[in-house]
Design a binder for these strands. Structure first.
Length: 952
RNA sequence: GCCCCCGUAGCCCAAUGGCAGAGGCAGGCCCCUUAAAAGGGCUCCAGUGUCGGUUCGAAUCCGACCGGGGGUACCA
């Protein structure tokens, strides 16, 4: 036992007392299995009969990445919030599932291992141990049996299994769903389906193809496929990265290193096939608008038309435009410098009379084009930004025909057109597009308006609404039409005359799925003599990550260096002799590993059935916890409440939706979405201090003197930012446990604001939450004897009113995740009790509900008080207090009387008075009468029980 | 540039169309204490970023602007 200082009452609620209570209850919860949550069936089903009638509730946190630095007080904000909510809903009659695992594979864990020179498994496991200790000390009510780590073999074998399922699937665009690849082969063999567009590089039909060729065509349909395409190569990390992992200024999300575009052979996931469903189903989710918007923007669906422009050189140029109505105003074309048609379209000679601006003053088109291409490829994204929007480009020396009016228009290459979007080529309409206008001005190209701007329009390109002009041809006239009508008419015309068709494009690209790193899931893939990838059969899983001496990635600052997967260093692993049905042969293994997002794409499913070694999750268990609610038509199913930071808006939250939809299509899960309701918690912010070199100094060592801040003797500048290592302003939960206890920390974090709001951390304000616990403690426990201090006396009506109003308010705060108002209501009740019962003797009938209401927020102290009040069982499964409506209304109320909206008096009236009675009572008041005297009352607004307003 | 969120007391935040204050921190005063505070009590403090509109009535709804935060950006 920890000694209390001698002069403090021995049973006061101090940090030492809190520690004793908290450690004891944490042990007891573990021993009793208090938070064991039974499944309806399977190995974890023991005790299900106790909860069989309860509605289920699945609450989940975005699981943490166990970094070497451990937790700071910002990390558990969401974890505490979900714990409070889960504990409340359990007491409120739900059967609640809440668990916690660890996202253990991936770059940050590996970077930490590299920095400390230890094996990532060693550091990761040590970090997990530390996280578990810190989180357990917080008193979170998780089912400990369900904790998983993505780097555990028993977990990643199922990550590999799901990858295999995705590899063995294709997307049926007609049915808009993923299907097993065997069904595609059956259809192709039966001749009822042709290979999809762009999947058959051979000039022959399916029946004419060889076995190997057929395999290649099938591979081109798979949802996981290998492709050679420009990807994001980050030499400093030694790996390629997904688009979602590259920041707007062309650097790596992790580490902020430069990223280069470069064609490499890599694994991709066909997430674009699901773009429409990922977009449409956002409307069915209870997510914050801001996250939905970010996903909508990232998917970036635009509708318009694809148009083919014929060229003399042969192949037509296909463009995508959202404004087919402006086709008559297309006065030139632009290809991205990397566009494959550039070579054939580049003329051998400049046409006569070409302006110098078009040629870059170079003698031959080929030279001009090559030099521009070279320049463009060397310009990093950063340079492009820095050069603002100055338009550069070069004429390729040839022309294309505008299909609308047959005019010959020049073809340019320019870096303002990006290969990665649409077709990598545009029709330029300077009259209605500012970028094209800028280019046209720089290159003296004609500008034709095809939408009539209003008379007072003074700008350049006009993108607003207006009637079409200058848009008449032999077989089509748009003049006078509005934009919507003109678009439709143009698309009809394009389709009729074979110049194009309505089209949809997306900003979303396929997900680059392979990494040249060690610390990730190995692909369950081998390559045979034909060089084509094949999945390992299910019974060969798991494919364990081999141990390796040198796990460090090969990094470099040379953008022309090549990726080199560390797994390639183990020669006897890189090749293997297997019998995959064609006799024993030698195969090469896939040497890349999966990205860190793979494991987090499905962990919420594994919590449901963590010990299952026959399946990644039992179907019945998944249906129970995550299945769609038949009472709610259109319900997607999924986790009932998912809380995490906003930073995963287009990474984890998009990838996991995609995997979940594939699993749904293949019939493995009954829910269509992984997370039915998503809530983003705010950040914990803290003061940070910068010295005059601009370097952050340890915030903890900064002193405030006369309103200025000093680090030693040096004055420093105060800033404000997200708590973390980089700003040197972290406060650890361990410090808070030692100084105040876990319950105080929990209470403080929940009190600083509603869940979705960021809030500044202020260590000196934490004491306020401790005081509240001390005062509630004192209501229940005698500080000198440790004995119960409540009485069995009757509850006065006034106290009942305060109690039941508190219950109603606390429930409201709990339901709406505004724990701050729940705590304020509890404080109000406590204040009432300490005033009304200054000498002790609070009726137990009030103290008990008070303790129960406190329980989700400060569970250890509440358990201890509950026990002091004479209860042997944990209060975890006690019913949460329910307000008695009889006490929520007063017999009389004081209502304001307004004259012209200004409060002039108040009158006391019976609570159930009607409008007429209220008016009579108000008129009877002498002050009101004085205001009304001599005026004509034009209108009386009387809201029974709220207020009355005379309009004179 | 475009989109989203947020501006209430020195600070964090309540009040979601009806008397601007629930609660906390900080400040001030008092009590307990040899003393101290992480104890107890009392108390000071804003008219809701600005301007307009809707309404009997606006912190709340609408519009514009200012300030802060976030997302995204030659996306055709």
């Amino acid at each position: 036992m920890i000694e209390q200082p001698a002069d403090i009452p021995p049973y006061r609620y101090t940090a030492a007392m809190a520690r004793r209570i908290e450690l004891a209850w944490q042990d007891r919860w573990d021993v009793d299995g208090t938070f064991h949550t039974p499944n309806p069936v399977g190995p974890l089903s023991e005790g299900f009969d106790r909860v069989v009638g309860r509605p289920k509730l699945y609450v989940n946190d975005m699981f943490p990445y166990p970094s070497g630095a451990g937790l700071h007080v910002g990390h558990p904000l969401g974890f505490i919030g979900t714990d409070v909510f889960a504990r409340y809903q359990r007491m409120n009659g739900h059967h609640v599932l809440h668990a916690m695992g660890f996202d253990a594979f991936g770059l940050p864990a590996e970077q930490y291992a590299v920095e400390t020179g230890q094996h990532p498994r060693v550091t990761t496991e040590a970090n997990i141990v530390n996280y578990r200790r810190q989180l357990r000390r917080l008193g979170l009510g998780h089912d400990p049996r369900r904790s998983v780590a993505t780097a555990d073999v028993s977990y990643y074998r199922w990550t590999q299994w799901i990858f295999r399922e995705i590899f063995n699937s294709w997307f049926d665009a007609d049915a808009q769903r993923g299907r097993p690849i065997d069904e595609l082969v059956t259809d192709l063999d039966a001749g009822i389906r042709e290979p999809g567009q762009g999947t058959n590089p051979f000039d022959r039909t399916w029946p004419e193809l060889s076995t190997v060729e057929r395999r290649e065509v099938v591979n081109n349909h798979r949802l996981a496929y290998v492709s050679e395409a420009p990807v994001n190569w980050c030499p400093a990390l030694g790996t390629v990265l997904a688009n979602e992992e590259v920041t707007a200024d062309g650097r790596s999300d992790r580490g902020n290193f430069p990223v280069y575009r470069r064609p490499l052979k890599q694994w991709m996931m066909r997430i674009t096939a699901y773009a429409d469903r990922l977009l449409a189903d956002l409307d069915r989710l209870d997510w914050t608008e801001s996250i939905k918007l970010m996903q909508r923007n990232w998917i970036g669906r635009s509708t318009g038309a694809s148009v083919i422009f014929a060229t003399d050189a042969g192949p037509g140029i296909e463009v995508f435009t959202t404004r087919p109505d402006t086709l008559f105003g297309a006065t030139y074309m632009v290809l991205a410098p990397e566009h494959p048609l550039v070579e054939v379209l580049t003329a051998s000679q400049w046409p006569d009379g070409v302006a110098e601006a078009w040629t870059g003053k170079v003698a031959l088109p080929r030279e001009a084009v090559l030099s521009y291409q070279k320049r463009a490829s060397q310009r990093s994204e950063m340079d492009r930004q820095a050069e603002a929007r100055t338009k550069t480009g070069v004429f390729v020396g040839s022309y294309a025909a505008n299909p609308a009016n047959g005019e010959q228009i020049p073809v340019f290459i320019a870096d303002y057109v990006l290969m990665g979007y649409g077709t990598g080529a545009i029709m330029a309409v300077p009259g209605q597009d500012q970028r094209d206008w800028d280019f046209a001005e720089a290159f003296e190209l004609p500008i034709v308006r095809t939408v009539q701007p209003p008379p007072d329009f003074t700008g350049e390109a006009f993108t607003g609404q207006g009637p079409a002009i200058n848009s008449a041809g032999e077989t089509l006239t748009l003049d006078g039409m509005g934009i919507v009508e003109a678009k439709a008419a143009m698309i009809d015309w394009l389709e009729q005359y074979g110049h194009g068709a309505g089209a949809v494009t997306y900003k979303l690209r396929d997900w680059l799925f392979s990494r040249q790193r060690y610390w990730g899931e190995p692909f369950p893939i081998v390559y045979g003599a034909d060089g084509l990838p094949q999945a390992l059969p299910e019974e060969m899983l798991p494919l364990t990550l081999p141990d390796i001496e040198d796990f460090t990635p090969k990094t470099s600052d040379d953008e022309n260096s090549d990726p080199e997967p560390p797994l390639g260093r183990i020669a006897d692993w890189a090749t293997v002799r297997l019998d995959l049905g064609e006799g024993e042969q030698e195969y090469r293994r896939e040497l890349n590993t999966m990205p860190q997002w793979a494991g987090s794409c499905w962990y919420e499913l594994r919590y449901l059935d963590p010990t299952n070694d026959q399946s990644f999750v039992d179907k019945e268990i998944e249906r129970y916890w995550m299945g769609p609610d038949p009472a709610k038509p259109g319900d997607t199913g999924g986790v009932d409440l998912y809380i995490g930071g906003v930073e995963h808006a287009v990474l984890h939250l998009l990838y996991s939706r995609f995997w979940h939809k594939v699993l749904f299509d293949l019939g493995h899960v009954s829910s269509e979405e992984p997370f039915r309701r998503l809530f983003n918690q705010g950040y914990v912010l803290a003061d940070a201090f910068v010295d005059n070199r601009g370097v952050y100094v340890e915030a903890e060592q900064v002193e405030q003197r006369d309103g200025r801040f000093f680090y030693g003797d040096e004055e420093v500048r105060r800033e404000h930012g997200k708590m973390g290592k980089s700003l040197k302003n972290s406060v650890t939960p361990d410090e808070m446990y030692a100084d105040y206890g876990a319950d105080t920390l929990r209470l403080y974090e929940m009190f600083t604001g509603p869940m979705d709001q960021s809030r500044p951390w202020e260590t000196k304000a934490v004491v306020g939450s401790m005081r509240l616990l001390q005062r509630i403690w004192r209501v229940v426990v005698d500080e000198n004897t440790g004995k119960v201090r409540t009485s069995e006396s009757a509850v006065p009506v006034e106290t009942s009113r305060v109690l039941h109003r508190t219950i109603a308010g606390v429930r409201d705060g709990m339901e709406t995740l505004r724990f701050n108002i729940a705590i304020a209501k509890i404080t109000e009740l406590t204040n009432h009790l300490t005033t009304a019962y200054a000498q002790g003797g609070v009726p137990a009938a009030v103290a008990e509900p008070l303790v129960l209401m406190l329980a989700p927020l400060a569970p250890h102290a509440a358990e201890e008080m509950w026990s002091t009040l004479g209860h042997e069982q944990s209060l975890t499964w006690e019913a949460f207090p329910v307000p008695d409506p009889a006490y929520l209304v007063d017999e009389t109320v004081e209502i304001p009387v307004q004259v012209n909206g200004k409060v002039r008096a108040t009158v006391v009236v019976p609570a159930d008075i009607d409008a007429a009675g209220m008016e009579a009572a108000a008129r009877a008041d002498t002050r009101v009468a004085a205001y009304l005297d001599g005026n004509t009352v034009r209108k009386v607004v009387a809201v029974p029980g709220r207020l009355i307003n005379f309009v004179v």
